[in-house]
Design a protein around this nucleic acid. Structure first.
Lengths: 184, 184
DNA sequence: GTGTACATGTAATCCGTTACATGATTCC
DNA sequence: GGAATCATGTAACGGATTACATGTACAC
């Protein structure tokens, strides 16, 4: 079955995760997404991963098989020839959309005239901590990509480094904001 | 009518835009969103603005009236007492969610092993131009906030400055990426 | 008179989440 | 025995977009 409705970027992201490994279960895919996609592209919910996999299966871009795992069987997915081709075509022939940002803290700041400055400072501080946590998590992931004899994670490292800088810039911005809000 | 289902952040964003002016039409709100929200929070589509206004009206957070404009009448919206209170309450009593980022270019880079590096360089270059355009647009908005005797736009300026730095950081990141991709 | 901006909506659809449901396996 | 993790789904819902539809006002 190969109908060719255009897939969402998230579908391609799932397909992309499958391009790193021979085969993965839905659950494993979720964890991969959590250690990679999460930092730069909202990691899809478990249920969405399963439904994307269903769709990819229906269009022949992945194949599935039941694999014995202990007493029971798990369902693993593997990217197909046509899946691989479709992914490459998408990457090469379509231009990436601009990033989508919903910066909830910025929205709060924008409406800062309606709240006591102290509250804003608290919220900025909380965001700083969130950024620091994300950065630390990403640093841990980045460290795990160091051992890579055959260069599979070459680009993942590049993105991870970009991400570390991204969160650092965010932290810098929050530091500036903190001092700006000091004397208001 | 005051049912109190929790509103989406976008609804509060619309309400927030109404907190700057006595009254605005849906169309005007759209333009305000386009010169403010757009830079840090995806600007809602026209149709969403109208439907959010409908909901805000139904819950009494805004009021509407028909205003003669030339030959015809336009519909303007005004934030109500309870709307203002609800907005303040939301700002003060709920914590902002973490930012949502969908960085499509980062996704492409992450899957960089599947495309010719040259293509990646092109896409990074295109993103750089997009960032520069956004930054320039924001700088123009920022300049327009300079004349502000009664300090209405105090926080808007802070957010604009934050945004300018944000896009600058993004540009810096792209510059680093460009040179990293040079020798691959 | 034609195109652009102003102005207002409806309908279909999609992307994605949360909540619900279930059960096996493993570790303590 | 119980908790955490692995594992797989369905259903309801909501947020948001695109496409469709319509019409006025104004500038060139």
């Amino acid at each position: 079955v190969v109908s060719s409705q255009p897939l969402s970027p998230t579908a391609y992201a799932v397909l992309g995760l499958l391009s790193f490994e021979p085969e993965l279960t839905g659950y494993e895919l979720r964890r991969r997404a959590d250690s990679t996609l999460r930092f730069f592209y909202a990691a899809p919910a478990m249920s969405q991963i399963y439904s994307e996999l269903e769709r990819l299966l229906a269009t022949g871009l992945v194949s599935a098989r039941e694999v014995p795992a202990g007493q029971r069987t798990v369902r693993t997915y593997r990217i197909s020839r046509t899946g691989s081709a479709a992914l490459r075509r998408w990457l090469e022939e379509t231009d990436p959309e601009p990033p989508v940002l919903k910066h909830h803290l910025a929205l709060r700041l924008f409406l800062g005239h309606l709240v006591p400055p102290e509250r804003l400072r608290e919220q900025v501080a909380a965001h700083r901590e969130w950024c620091a946590r994300m950065q630390a998590d990403l640093a841990a992931v980045r460290a795990g990509l160091e051992d890579d004899p055959d260069g599979t994670w070459r680009y993942a490292r590049i993105v991870a480094d970009w991400g570390l800088a991204y969160y650092q810039a965010e932290l810098d911005g929050m530091a500036r904001l903190t001092s700006e809000l000091e004397h208001m």
